[in-house]
């Protein structure tokens, strides 16, 4: 049975995120910097009466950091903490069948490979499905769980 995936643009490419990892989709406001924290974390932001940790998704994928221009984010919850994962843009939510990454997988660099779950095919275009939680620094177990 196909699962629902949210298609988002990260650093100019499409990724698919399983919908059960998506709590909501927001535009975040001012970000409070967190000195000394990993460069994958942009800081903290207020979301209604809650504080979320903002993750620089491109940086977490080993790409150049977003440089503070991104505002759109996917809110995901891991171990009771709320994270805002910055993305360029959001497209639609569609059911897809997850396929193995296959031969193309070996061409991925390590950050992508660690996050990659499989491939979904959108109108003939292969889109990498990623596990958002594996991009969140500081959660050792979920980060290193490789299937």
């Amino acid at each position: 049975m196909p699962d629902l995936y949210l298609i988002a643009q990260v650093a100019g490419r499409a990724v698919a995120i399983e919908s059960n990892q998506v709590e909501s989709v927001v535009d975040i406001g001012e970000i409070t910097a967190v000195p000394r924290v990993s460069s994958h974390i942009r800081g903290l932001a207020a979301l209604r009466s809650r504080v979320v940790t903002v993750v620089d998704t491109p940086a977490a994928l080993g790409l150049p950091g977003s440089g503070g221009t991104l505002r759109r984010a996917i809110i995901t919850v891991l171990d009771g903490h709320h994270y805002a994962m910055l993305v360029d843009a959001l497209e639609d939510v569609t059911p897809f069948d997850l396929q193995p990454i296959g031969a193309g997988g070996s061409a991925l660099d390590s950050a992508w490979r660690a996050a990659g779950l499989g491939i979904v095919e959108r109108d003939g275009e292969p889109v990498l499905a990623i596990d958002l939680h594996r991009l969140i620094p500081g959660h050792a177990q979920s980060n290193h769980q490789v299937h």
Binding site: V34, P35, R36, V37, S38, H40, I41, L44, V51, T53, D79, H81, Y83, I136, P137, G138, H139
Partner: peptide, 15 residues
């Protein structure tokens, strides 16, 4: 409590 990555800095007690 702040998220693990923030706590990992060792400087903060919470948010």
């Amino acid at each position: 409590p702040a998220s693990p990555a923030v706590m990992a800095t060792g400087v903060y007690a919470g948010q």
